[in-house]
Design a protein around this nucleic acid. Structure first.
Lengths: 248, 248
DNA sequence: TAGTGGTCTAGACCACTGT
DNA sequence: CAGTGGTCTAGACCACTAG
């Protein structure tokens, strides 16, 4: 029942997690009203503002919804919770219960062409890192992925890593302290070119899902520009869309 | 300079909008530090908590980012801000500078088949509304869209509306008080069937972008199940992905 | 050392919901 | 009417950052 005021995690986060756990355990069921903000404050010996912050986190994560004058209620569980997240290929396959592996096609420093420069907001001729990989699930080729990075942000990244095993996102985070926050993604259906057909072992009439993604850090600076082609019959992309904020 | 304490919009929203406007006007430029929370509180005669809430809104909308011990800084403007949002076809086309129009293929009440029942969390045989439309941009067919709704949530919706002109989302909101909050979307590349080829005027080797979307209201109850096929050469989907909250 | 954002408290008034 | 969430105040202490 008690929260730990001297712990490193804030009280409102502790309370959020506690309530989330109780919802997941069925102590509070779908549609049921949670204790009011004032009751929670009393139960857990915190101020009402702290209880309120916990409930706001729960609301943001989709576990509860509030009704003015009535109370806070448990939402129906969200399916596919992980859709919210920007995931790596490895995570994505893991979520699907498949074993991810990769083969590196190219890993080199080169000069940015016009499109890469535009997407990464560089000048043509600036140095970039190109990492091309075939992505496989349970040994079957699923996608070809060409990732372009601003070389200035990740010097020597190709020297110390084996990207047939390591995650690019993980390395960017751990070694270069680059946190990827959001991505803009364009998706199209098209017929594959000769190389794609060969590498993905596509039959004559199988299209590919073409993705172009630019990933940004917390300052909205482009970090990564990826062009990838997914096997039309073996891959289905899943995303979540949200209706945004009341304000503005 | 002054905020209006007696206005209907809360002070922190007023302040958020004020700051946002100043950022957009270039009064605060990219990378520049905003006044501190305490300074804002003094400048606008509000408490620090109120100023803080305004800054949190600005952060959530991607206009600023904070650094502990340093301050709050203006982010680089986000391109394609509208990606965040769950948009209707009409809005989508409008954003692309195209004129949207529709032709209704079917509009009827029928019994749910197995998949529709599963997606809308109904029992097979429950009544649903089926609305099938061809979507056009500047007169050219872009997509075929089959929308399925739980008939219980929107009785008589087909009697009073002309969905070749009206927006389904608008009607659900205005007349049935249904607010669509988020959607789970599956995307695939595939070859069209005979009907799709005919209706979308596809050449022999043009694939389609197949979408399956389930849209949920604030209680996470499924409202709409849509199956649509987009012309592979005339349409490119754009979405934004986010890396989710620090807290679990 | 001074200033920053992050957390937390203990109050207050408001509009809205149900009985 | 009593209870609810939404807003707002005026303080406080903390860990972190910079000069």
């Amino acid at each position: 029942m008690e929260l730990n005021p001297s712990a490193a995690t804030p009280l409102y986060v502790q309370l959020k997690l506690r309530l989330q756990q109780q919802i997941e355990e069925g102590i509070y069921t779908v549609g049921e009203r949670l204790p009011s903000e004032r009751e929670l404050a009393e139960m857990y010996h915190v101020s009402r503002m702290t209880a309120r912050q916990a409930l706001q986190l729960l609301q943001q994560s989709g576990h509860v919804y509030t009704q003015v004058g009535k109370g806070t209620y448990v939402s129906r569980p969200k399916i596919e919770h992980e859709l919210r997240r920007l995931t790596s290929f490895t995570e994505d396959m893991h979520n699907r219960g498949l074993q991810a592996s990769s083969r590196v096609l190219k890993a080199e420093v080169r000069l940015a062409d016009e499109e890469t420069a535009r997407r990464l907001e560089l000048s043509p001729g600036d140095e970039i890192v190109l990492l091309s990989r075939i992505r496989m699930a349970d040994g079957e080729p699923i996608a070809i992925e060409h990732a372009h990075l601003n070389h200035r942000r990740c010097r020597n990244i190709l020297n110390n890593h084996d990207f047939s095993r390591e995650s690019l996102y993980q390395v960017l985070h751990d070694q270069y302290n680059i946190r990827l926050v959001w991505a803009s993604q364009e998706i199209e259906a098209r017929m594959p070119d000769e190389e794609e057909r060969r590498l993905l072992k596509l039959s004559a009439r199988t299209p590919v899902l073409g993705l172009v993604r630019v990933t940004y850090d917390e300052r909205n600076q482009p970090v990564e520009f990826v062009r990838s082609s997914y096997h039309g019959e073996r891959y289905r992309l899943r995303v979540a869309l949200y209706h945004q904020e009341v304000v503005s």
